[in-house]
Design a protein around this nucleic acid. Structure first.
Lengths: 303, 303
DNA sequence: CCTTGTGCTTCAAATTTTGCAGCGCAACTG
DNA sequence: CAGTTGCGCTGCAAAATTTGAAGCACAAGG
């Protein structure tokens, strides 16, 4: 809080017992701090520190003042706390519809982060494909939607959109693991598992093969990424997933390899809300957090 | 005081109702003021103004904040006053809201007495009915309030409360002058002048007549006791006033007679301050003086 | 007598704040 | 329905303020 800076500095000087020490504590120069003290004493109308050899000490006026300062800070905290309560930052509920890929790692971590700061806020997380998520927004059944490749962008406010490459998922001992630069064509040469058409990643795959001579010939079409991840360990098959749904840090049975952007267009992970709607404080904040995290990550994840 | 500048500006915006008007009042540009407000809201963590067509208004968070601001400024003043006191300067300012009845005799005498000892202290005296006086205390616009029959006692600290009988006021040659033991019923038989409902004495009169068969049928309802005192010299009417507002020692045109306590309840002249607030040295001393004087007088004035 | 640590000062550089002008918006007004 | 008014807000350059680096005088301790 800026307007309390001088008061905080006075407090620091009081605690440190000398201006130079306090200056170090507060990461400013002693000259700057000294001048702030002098300036304050001037406008206050009386000195508040006794200068003695080896440091300073509060004089009676300073004692009176420091008490005021502490009371003031405490009272401001009280006000902020009350405001936080009444603005619904602390209490509230966030309802979000999001892709399956976000369920294992991303959403749990995000929600835990948020709740660490605001334990009074509760969450509903709905797994929805892109079309269903939009329906949820329209019906006001979810405040937010975070999905890949949304369908009807026009009806919603896009809070953020980041690109995610499509990754091939395979067993650790798969033949393709050796390839540095993985092409879609290579994958399709092996048995592959893909999601149904309503899922964003399938949309991108369909788009990709439509530009190629080859065709998608899945040995299995499955709703569940979980199914896919386990299946590729049984048969030497290939699956597909966005990195946000993968534990890139390390998986002892699976290997993930990004596909070229020129082969398969990057997916757009998009955070949306109903057009023009004003979200609750908790939802808005959570949306901000998501946006910040995704923006930070965007650069890192690009292969 | 520099570190309070932003807070003062917020207060100004609140009072003016628009940023541009407030900017003019405070002699800065609206753009500068606007950015300070925005900056403050950001570091505060929540908006404090609602923006509406034609201006701004405090939102609930802002209301909370403005109360904090006022308390803070008042408290800083107190600290400065205490500091001035311990440095032997004995300067200061006392701001008091009080009933009209105290204006002609009581307050001037009290203030003159105080200033005889402490010539460095200045005064603001606000004429306020009982409700308005309490508003002043709440807004930290007055340090003290001295009024009859306060309304919301719970919100304030009562420093003193003394009873005052209601007196009838009439011309020296009025028929009622002869009566030793004056009843309210007698007065109501004559044309009478009463104050409006927000004034304490009217409250007592209304209470009294509600227990009687007779009714209050004032020929004039007037804000000003001055008006009443002069009017009763023109028509043979009766007015009402507390003794503290009368020159009991002698008036060559008017006569004052107390009404029975059983007819009209005594009024409570009450000295109050904002609950929990620590007053400046000057205000606290002046309050002490008032309390002492009123306590001394209490016995004397009872009829 | 020198070293150490203090508060304080000087002056240019860095940072912040301000004023000006103008934009877009909503509500009046003729 | 065009025109005006008053509002909050913003980009940008100028002005004002604050800062940092260096150094001074002073007092205490070895």
């Amino acid at each position: 809080m800026k307007h309390l800076q001088t008061l905080k500095l006075i407090d620091a000087v009081n605690k440190a017992g000398s201006i130079r020490k306090a200056a170090e504590d507060m990461n400013i120069t002693s000259s700057a701090l000294n001048r702030r003290i002098l300036g304050f004493e001037e406008e206050f109308g009386a000195p508040i520190f006794e200068r003695l050899h080896g440091g300073v000490r509060l004089n009676p006026a300073g004692e009176l003042l420091i008490e005021h300062i502490r009371g003031q800070m405490a009272d401001l905290e009280r006000v902020r706390s009350q405001v936080a309560d009444l603005s619904g930052l602390r209490r509230g509920h966030v309802s979000i519809a999001c892709s399956q890929a976000l369920q294992p790692y991303f959403m749990p971590a995000q929600i835990a982060d948020y709740r660490a700061e605001h334990p009074g806020v509760s969450f509903s997380v709905q797994v929805r494909d892109r079309e269903a998520a939009e329906e949820d927004l329209r019906a006001f059944q979810s405040d937010l939607a975070l999905v890949f490749e949304p369908v009807h962008l026009g009806d919603f406010d896009v809070l953020l959109s980041v690109e995610q490459p499509v990754f091939a998922v395979m067993a650790k001992d798969h033949a393709l693991v050796e390839k540095r630069d993985l092409r879609l064509r290579d994958c399709l040469g092996f048995p592959h598992v893909v999601p149904p058409k309503r899922i964003g990643i399938r949309f991108l795959l369909d788009l990709a093969v439509s530009r190629m001579s080859q065709k998608l010939e899945p040995i299995a079409e499955a709703d569940s990424f979980e199914f896919m991840r386990h299946y590729v360990q049984h048969e030497r098959a290939v699956g597909f997933q966005f990195p946000i749904g993968l534990n890139l840090a390390g998986d002892d049975r699976l290997v993930f390899r990004p596909l070229r952007k020129s082969d398969v267009t990057y997916g757009n992970l998009t955070l949306m809300q109903m057009k023009g709607r004003t979200l609750s404080v908790a939802s808005a904040r959570f949306a901000n957090q998501l946006a910040a995290t995704l923006n930070d990550r965007a650069g890192v994840q690009e292969p």
